[in-house]
Design a protein around this nucleic acid. Structure first.
Lengths: 109, 109
DNA sequence: GCATACTAGTCTTCATTGCAAACTAGTCTG
DNA sequence: CAGACTAGTTTGCAATGAAGACTAGTATGC
Protein backbone atom coordinates (compact mmCIF):
# COMPACT_ATOMS: atom_id res chain seq x y z
CA UNK A 1 0.00 0.00 0.00
CA UNK A 2 1.52 3.30 -1.05
CA UNK A 3 1.82 6.51 0.80
CA UNK A 4 -1.38 7.81 2.22
CA UNK A 5 -2.89 4.62 3.66
CA UNK A 6 -6.35 5.92 4.14
CA UNK A 7 -8.46 4.89 7.07
CA UNK A 8 -6.92 1.68 8.31
CA UNK A 9 -10.23 1.52 9.86
CA UNK A 10 -12.52 4.49 10.19
CA UNK A 11 -10.60 5.61 13.23
CA UNK A 12 -7.97 7.08 11.01
CA UNK A 13 -10.30 9.91 10.13
CA UNK A 14 -9.90 11.19 13.65
CA UNK A 15 -6.65 12.80 12.70
CA UNK A 16 -8.05 15.21 10.20
CA UNK A 17 -10.65 16.68 12.42
CA UNK A 18 -11.14 20.39 11.83
CA UNK A 19 -9.23 21.84 14.72
CA UNK A 20 -10.75 25.25 14.36
CA UNK A 21 -14.07 23.72 15.33
CA UNK A 22 -12.65 21.09 17.62
CA UNK A 23 -11.40 23.49 20.27
CA UNK A 24 -13.98 23.32 23.06
CA UNK A 25 -14.37 27.06 23.51
CA UNK A 26 -15.00 27.52 19.81
CA UNK A 27 -17.26 24.52 19.60
CA UNK A 28 -19.33 26.16 22.26
CA UNK A 29 -19.39 29.48 20.46
CA UNK A 30 -20.32 27.83 17.20
CA UNK A 31 -23.09 25.88 18.86
CA UNK A 32 -24.69 29.08 20.03
CA UNK A 33 -24.29 30.79 16.73
CA UNK A 34 -25.66 27.81 14.92
CA UNK A 35 -29.00 28.04 16.64
CA UNK A 36 -29.22 31.73 17.33
CA UNK A 37 -28.17 32.85 13.88
CA UNK A 38 -26.90 36.17 15.14
CA UNK A 39 -25.66 37.18 18.53
CA UNK A 40 -23.74 40.01 20.06
CA UNK A 41 -20.47 39.87 21.90
CA UNK A 42 -22.00 40.24 25.31
CA UNK A 43 -24.52 37.53 24.75
CA UNK A 44 -21.75 35.12 23.89
CA UNK A 45 -19.67 36.37 26.75
CA UNK A 46 -22.41 35.52 29.19
CA UNK A 47 -23.44 32.25 27.66
CA UNK A 48 -19.97 30.89 27.35
CA UNK A 49 -18.37 32.20 30.53
CA UNK A 50 -15.19 32.89 28.67
CA UNK A 51 -13.17 35.95 29.53
CA UNK A 52 -13.44 38.86 27.17
CA UNK A 53 -9.94 38.49 25.87
CA UNK A 54 -10.40 34.85 25.32
CA UNK A 55 -13.72 35.24 23.57
CA UNK A 56 -12.31 37.98 21.41
CA UNK A 57 -9.38 35.93 20.25
CA UNK A 58 -11.50 32.89 19.50
CA UNK A 59 -13.82 35.03 17.45
CA UNK A 60 -10.91 36.46 15.53
CA UNK A 61 -9.72 32.99 14.83
CA UNK A 62 -13.12 31.96 13.61
CA UNK A 63 -13.27 35.02 11.45
CA UNK A 64 -9.88 34.31 9.98
CA UNK A 65 -11.03 30.79 9.18
CA UNK A 66 -13.98 32.31 7.38
CA UNK A 67 -16.47 30.79 9.77
CA UNK A 68 -18.02 33.86 11.34
CA UNK A 69 -18.84 37.38 10.34
CA UNK A 70 -17.93 40.07 12.77
CA UNK A 71 -20.11 43.04 12.24
CA UNK A 72 -19.34 46.13 14.26
CA UNK A 73 -21.91 48.84 14.42
CA UNK A 74 -23.01 51.60 16.69
CA UNK A 75 -26.34 51.57 18.39
CA UNK A 76 -27.04 54.96 19.90
CA UNK A 77 -23.36 55.78 20.25
CA UNK A 78 -22.45 52.59 21.94
CA UNK A 79 -20.54 49.97 20.01
CA UNK A 80 -22.17 46.69 19.31
CA UNK A 81 -20.54 43.67 17.75
CA UNK A 82 -22.77 41.24 15.97
CA UNK A 83 -21.55 37.75 15.27
CA UNK A 84 -23.02 35.33 12.81
CA UNK A 85 -22.00 32.16 11.08
CA UNK A 86 -20.98 32.35 7.48
CA UNK A 87 -22.15 29.74 5.06
CA UNK A 88 -18.80 27.98 5.38
CA UNK A 89 -18.99 28.21 9.13
CA UNK A 90 -22.34 26.56 9.10
CA UNK A 91 -21.04 23.90 6.80
CA UNK A 92 -17.87 23.32 8.82
CA UNK A 93 -19.84 22.97 12.01
CA UNK A 94 -22.26 20.57 10.44
CA UNK A 95 -19.55 18.44 8.94
CA UNK A 96 -17.63 18.37 12.16
CA UNK A 97 -20.73 17.31 13.98
CA UNK A 98 -21.52 14.57 11.50
CA UNK A 99 -17.98 13.32 11.56
CA UNK A 100 -17.85 13.20 15.31
CA UNK A 101 -21.12 11.37 15.52
CA UNK A 102 -19.82 8.80 13.09
CA UNK A 103 -16.56 8.43 14.94
CA UNK A 104 -18.27 7.89 18.23
CA UNK A 105 -20.59 5.40 16.72
CA UNK A 106 -17.63 3.33 15.61
CA UNK A 107 -15.77 3.83 18.83
CA UNK A 108 -15.69 1.07 21.39
CA UNK A 109 -16.23 3.14 24.58
CA UNK B 1 -26.58 32.24 40.96
CA UNK B 2 -23.05 32.32 42.36
CA UNK B 3 -19.80 31.48 40.76
CA UNK B 4 -19.88 28.33 38.75
CA UNK B 5 -23.22 28.71 36.89
CA UNK B 6 -23.54 25.15 35.78
CA UNK B 7 -24.86 24.20 32.40
CA UNK B 8 -26.90 27.14 31.13
CA UNK B 9 -28.03 24.42 28.95
CA UNK B 10 -26.17 21.20 28.39
CA UNK B 11 -23.88 22.93 26.00
CA UNK B 12 -22.02 24.43 28.86
CA UNK B 13 -20.48 21.08 29.59
CA UNK B 14 -18.49 21.41 26.43
CA UNK B 15 -16.02 23.59 28.22
CA UNK B 16 -14.87 21.02 30.67
CA UNK B 17 -14.06 18.37 28.20
CA UNK B 18 -11.01 16.35 29.18
CA UNK B 19 -8.40 17.89 26.95
CA UNK B 20 -5.96 15.09 27.43
CA UNK B 21 -8.38 12.82 25.64
CA UNK B 22 -9.80 15.46 23.34
CA UNK B 23 -6.63 15.98 21.34
CA UNK B 24 -7.18 14.07 18.10
CA UNK B 25 -3.85 12.28 18.05
CA UNK B 26 -4.41 11.04 21.58
CA UNK B 27 -8.00 10.16 20.94
CA UNK B 28 -6.74 7.97 18.16
CA UNK B 29 -4.11 6.36 20.33
CA UNK B 30 -6.60 5.74 23.10
CA UNK B 31 -9.06 4.22 20.67
CA UNK B 32 -6.51 1.65 19.64
CA UNK B 33 -5.45 0.91 23.14
CA UNK B 34 -9.03 0.60 24.25
CA UNK B 35 -9.71 -2.30 21.94
CA UNK B 36 -6.28 -3.87 21.74
CA UNK B 37 -5.57 -3.80 25.45
CA UNK B 38 -1.82 -3.82 24.93
CA UNK B 39 0.24 -2.66 21.99
CA UNK B 40 3.81 -1.82 21.26
CA UNK B 41 5.25 1.45 20.09
CA UNK B 42 5.70 0.36 16.52
CA UNK B 43 2.21 -0.94 16.22
CA UNK B 44 0.84 2.41 17.28
CA UNK B 45 3.31 4.18 15.07
CA UNK B 46 2.02 2.34 12.04
CA UNK B 47 -1.64 2.49 12.90
CA UNK B 48 -1.69 6.15 13.71
CA UNK B 49 0.73 7.49 11.10
CA UNK B 50 2.16 9.86 13.63
CA UNK B 51 5.84 10.61 13.61
CA UNK B 52 7.94 8.91 16.23
CA UNK B 53 8.63 12.09 18.11
CA UNK B 54 5.04 13.03 18.11
CA UNK B 55 3.82 9.63 19.20
CA UNK B 56 6.40 9.53 21.93
CA UNK B 57 5.38 12.85 23.39
CA UNK B 58 1.70 12.04 23.29
CA UNK B 59 2.38 8.80 25.09
CA UNK B 60 4.36 10.63 27.71
CA UNK B 61 1.52 13.01 28.18
CA UNK B 62 -0.90 10.16 28.56
CA UNK B 63 1.39 8.52 31.04
CA UNK B 64 1.69 11.71 33.04
CA UNK B 65 -2.08 11.93 33.10
CA UNK B 66 -2.14 8.42 34.48
CA UNK B 67 -3.97 7.07 31.47
CA UNK B 68 -1.44 4.66 30.03
CA UNK B 69 1.27 2.38 31.31
CA UNK B 70 4.53 2.49 29.49
CA UNK B 71 6.34 -0.75 29.97
CA UNK B 72 9.85 -0.98 28.57
CA UNK B 73 11.44 -4.34 28.26
CA UNK B 74 14.04 -6.10 26.21
CA UNK B 75 13.19 -8.93 23.91
CA UNK B 76 16.35 -10.65 22.79
CA UNK B 77 18.44 -7.53 23.30
CA UNK B 78 16.18 -5.26 21.35
CA UNK B 79 14.05 -2.75 23.23
CA UNK B 80 10.34 -3.09 23.17
CA UNK B 81 7.86 -0.65 24.59
CA UNK B 82 4.49 -1.96 25.58
CA UNK B 83 1.60 0.42 26.03
CA UNK B 84 -1.62 -0.26 27.81
CA UNK B 85 -4.48 1.68 29.28
CA UNK B 86 -4.66 2.07 32.99
CA UNK B 87 -7.94 1.72 34.76
CA UNK B 88 -8.23 5.50 34.90
CA UNK B 89 -7.35 5.75 31.24
CA UNK B 90 -10.11 3.36 30.40
CA UNK B 91 -12.48 5.31 32.54
CA UNK B 92 -11.44 8.66 31.12
CA UNK B 93 -11.87 7.45 27.60
CA UNK B 94 -15.23 6.00 28.32
CA UNK B 95 -16.46 9.12 30.03
CA UNK B 96 -15.17 11.31 27.29
CA UNK B 97 -16.91 9.18 24.76
CA UNK B 98 -20.20 9.23 26.65
CA UNK B 99 -19.99 12.93 27.15
CA UNK B 100 -19.32 13.60 23.51
CA UNK B 101 -22.17 11.40 22.42
CA UNK B 102 -24.47 13.29 24.69
CA UNK B 103 -23.23 16.63 23.51
CA UNK B 104 -23.70 15.74 19.90
CA UNK B 105 -27.12 14.43 20.59
CA UNK B 106 -28.11 17.82 21.97
CA UNK B 107 -26.31 19.71 19.29
CA UNK B 108 -28.27 21.24 16.44
CA UNK B 109 -25.97 20.32 13.54
C1' DG C 1 36.04 -7.18 11.71
C1' DC C 2 34.55 -2.99 10.98
C1' DA C 3 31.66 0.31 8.78
C1' DT C 4 27.27 0.95 7.06
C1' DA C 5 22.46 0.61 7.49
C1' DC C 6 18.65 -0.32 10.29
C1' DT C 7 15.66 -0.52 14.58
C1' DA C 8 13.53 1.65 18.42
C1' DG C 9 12.92 5.37 20.66
C1' DT C 10 14.17 10.02 23.11
C1' DC C 11 15.53 14.87 23.12
C1' DT C 12 15.52 19.45 21.22
C1' DT C 13 13.76 23.05 18.74
C1' DC C 14 10.17 25.80 16.96
C1' DA C 15 5.98 28.00 15.85
C1' DT C 16 1.29 28.09 17.39
C1' DT C 17 -2.12 28.04 20.97
C1' DG C 18 -5.22 29.36 24.55
C1' DC C 19 -5.71 32.19 28.33
C1' DA C 20 -6.09 36.19 31.34
C1' DA C 21 -4.77 40.62 32.69
C1' DA C 22 -3.85 45.17 31.24
C1' DC C 23 -5.14 48.60 28.38
C1' DT C 24 -8.09 51.72 25.21
C1' DA C 25 -11.92 54.44 23.67
C1' DG C 26 -15.87 56.23 24.58
C1' DT C 27 -20.37 56.89 27.57
C1' DC C 28 -23.07 57.60 31.55
C1' DT C 29 -23.80 59.24 36.48
C1' DG C 30 -23.58 61.97 40.72
C1' DC D 1 -16.11 67.06 35.51
C1' DA D 2 -14.34 62.98 38.20
C1' DG D 3 -15.13 58.46 38.63
C1' DA D 4 -17.35 54.26 37.21
C1' DC D 5 -18.95 51.56 33.64
C1' DT D 6 -19.37 49.43 28.83
C1' DA D 7 -17.39 47.04 25.05
C1' DG D 8 -13.88 45.25 23.32
C1' DT D 9 -8.58 44.80 21.76
C1' DT D 10 -3.77 44.17 22.58
C1' DT D 11 -0.05 42.23 25.03
C1' DG D 12 2.49 38.83 27.56
C1' DC D 13 3.16 34.30 28.79
C1' DA D 14 3.26 29.41 29.68
C1' DA D 15 1.89 25.13 27.57
C1' DT D 16 1.20 22.48 23.39
C1' DG D 17 1.83 19.78 19.22
C1' DA D 18 4.86 18.58 15.46
C1' DA D 19 9.01 17.14 13.30
C1' DG D 20 13.66 16.43 12.82
C1' DA D 21 18.18 15.58 15.07
C1' DC D 22 20.18 12.57 17.98
C1' DT D 23 21.35 8.17 20.79
C1' DA D 24 22.06 3.32 21.77
C1' DG D 25 22.31 -0.83 20.25
C1' DT D 26 21.82 -4.74 16.47
C1' DA D 27 22.19 -7.00 12.08
C1' DT D 28 24.43 -7.03 7.41
C1' DG D 29 27.82 -6.36 3.55
C1' DC D 30 32.45 -6.59 2.00
Amino acid sequence: MPVSRKGAHGLQKIVDIDRVVHEPARLLILSYLYVVESADFLFLLRQTNLTKGNLSSHLMKLEKAGYVNIDKKFVKKIPRTLLSLTKEGRKAFHEYSQRMKKIFKELPG
